[in-house]
Design a protein around this nucleic acid. Sequence first.
RNA 1: GUCCCCAUCGUCUAGCCUGGUCUAGGACAAGAGCUUUUCAAGCUCUCGACACCGGUUCAAAUCCGGUUGGGGACGCCA
Length: 430
Amino acid sequence: MIRVRFAPSPTGNLHIGGARTALFNWLYARSKGGEFILRIEDTDLARSQKEYVDEILNSLTWLGFDWDEVYYQSQRFDIYREYAKKALDAGLAYIERSDTGKEAVIFKVIPQKIKISDLIHGDIEFDTSVIKDQVLIKSDGTPTYNFACVVDDALTDITHIVRGDDHISNTPKQVLLYNALGFKVPEFAHLPLILAKGGGRMSKRKGATAITEYRSMGYLPQALVNFLMLLGWSPGENREIIELKEALKLFDIKNVNKTAAVMDLDKLDWINNQYLKNEDPQRLTDQVIPSLIEKKLIDKDSFDRDYILSIVKLFQARLTVLSEFVDWADFFFLKDIPMDPKAEAKYLARDLSGEFKLFIDKLNNLDKFDIVNIEDAFRKLVAELNIESKALIHPIRVALTGKTVGPGLFEVIYHLGRERTSERLKRWIK
RNA sequence: GUCCCCAUCGUCUAGCCUGGUCUAGGACAAGAGCUUUUCAAGCUCUCGACACCGGUUCAAAUCCGGUUGGGGACGCCA
């Protein structure tokens, strides 16, 4: 049984890099019928926070990952001390006393060659003579990362360690500990790192955006996962859009790249639009309602869900991120629409009172107020006036929406309704 | 500085393991066009890469060595 773990430290939010590591761990385990374990590395009591634990678990769930077990290192200090004592008793470690009288347990590193066979990189060899003796238990009694990590991985029967390339240099230190403590050394798979746009490590300043931020920006979890998946792995056959379920069938850790990848948000945008286009509009409606309420475009207690749904359908294919919706569709919900000054100057500077008046009359005379009839009425009008369609389409759009861009004009008119359409047009009749 | 990892279009990648089918394929971005009522979407086309040097070989993007470049690690952080 394959058992992998994702071991975040709750000293910050789950960000892109962590999510990708979690994704590959999850993919590897679940594609092989194995188990995915979560371990919260909260040994640094001062910096670890409960809110971050919650945030990390929420983000993982939002992305679609489930786990079988959770461990908290802060609850396992006794275990680490026990193993430190074993190392001490076996003469593998020694005690170092600081000036203040505090004691730390230090592991003796014996010079030797360590070879690991990485699932992604192949053989890697290290010479431990360049490694200093390693602290096992700090003078405050807490374990160090490498020590707690090895003890936990061994005791929780982790068979494969899938983590970032930045841990390669920790590997020989850990192998030394596995051997010293009599544990079986697991398999390793070091994933290529995700680099920031301009190159270099990701940081808060350079693209290490929290998953929750992508969520609030309006990215769909499936899109984000799809994007992350393509960073270092390819499903083959030139596939770009692939969901988790299908990736499960195709995933093989041996096909993961060795090369670090640079984040390209343009591609994320494209993928998100692909998912948005195919997403169930009902679900998008549910997601959009809270922000409509928040922006006071609809009233919390009395809104027409079906109407919102129809508007969502109108914008669905043109959205890059869902959060754009409230800005693009505001005119469907507001009484006083914000007017883009440039649009007004360009299309409504000329007096169109006559044209608008005639159009309102035509709309009022329609037996059936639907998109086909609206368009028909409009086409007849421009034919009668002997003008180009666009000479009137653009001004009408600006008058109705306050913007130069948006869905097709006749759909806009239909969804706005006869009343609001003529009302907004009348404002420009002198 | 020491150790380690990596190297195909601007970006993500296919191909590399098992040399010839590669005048190197796809996607994003960019540019052009079609459509047209704007913006998207869609469709068509264009631009664009095997880092460099040497070796092995009849033949190298693919194998080997070096150079250069990029990245990572060297904490009583994780």
